[in-house]
């Protein structure tokens, strides 16, 4: 997987697991906040565990995964109180804490700059997916019907096929962009 673009890594590390939470923008924002929260807590726990000498890798990773999962489950329970989250998205929000991107801070040979850029790309992609799937799949923005009377019947974009299509398009566009403008590779 060496030489893989950052966007592609982020798609695989985070978005593929959370596709079910990108049907609307509020749900995508909830997924974003939950995975960020889980990542922060997992990073703190990971740093603390470095003070424990000779902790076996299996135990360390089991603890990290447990922490990520626990945080995401708790935050997912709170999400519907704050955001108009769809009931169908709840399982994905609860599982957000075990997406590999949550443990990016523990990844080998990953610099802080790389982590921050990856999270920036992740947030941008998640928001884009939520916005476009809600707009073109449901004809709404943040749950509000578009007042122009322009109703978009592209239901398939709210369905799994739309999620895969948008994600594939994002990766392909990035690859083509880097092919024609190689300097973009450092950013995306």
């Amino acid at each position: 997987m060496d030489g893989v673009l950052r966007t592609e890594k982020v798609v695989l590390l985070g978005l593929l697991t959370l596709l079910g939470a990108t049907t609307t923008l509020p749900t995508a924002v909830a997924a974003m906040v939950i995975s960020l929260g889980a990542a922060l807590v997992a990073a703190v726990v990971g740093r603390l565990m470095r003070f424990i000498p000779e902790i076996p890798e299996a135990v360390r990773w089991s603890l990290l995964i447990s922490v990520g999962f626990g945080v995401s489950w708790l935050l997912a329970e709170l999400a519907p109180q704050v955001l108009p989250v769809r009931t169908g998205a709840m399982p994905y929000l609860r599982l957000a804490g075990i997406a590999p991107i949550v443990f990016l801070g523990e990844a080998r040979e990953t610099t802080m700059r790389e982590q921050l850029l990856s999270w920036f790309v992740y947030i941008a992609l998640l928001a884009k997916m939520g916005f476009f799937r809600e707009l073109f799949g449901n004809g709404t923005i943040w749950g509000n019907l578009i007042s122009t009377g322009f109703v978009i019947p592209a239901d398939f974009l709210a369905a799994p096929i739309g999620a895969f299509l948008l994600l594939g398009t994002a990766v392909l566009t990035t690859r083509l962009a880097v092919r024609f403008i190689p300097s973009l590779e450092r950013l995306i």
């Binding site: 695989l12 369905a159 799994p160 895969f164 994600l167 594939g168 690859r175 092919r179």
Partner: peptide
């Protein structure tokens, strides 16, 4: 540019359809 991840994702889209 078209190999691996994009083609896998588009294939998944077709199967889900």
């Amino acid at each position: 540019e078209f190999k691996t991840t994009p083609v896998v994702l588009f294939t998944m889209a077709i199967f889900s359809l």
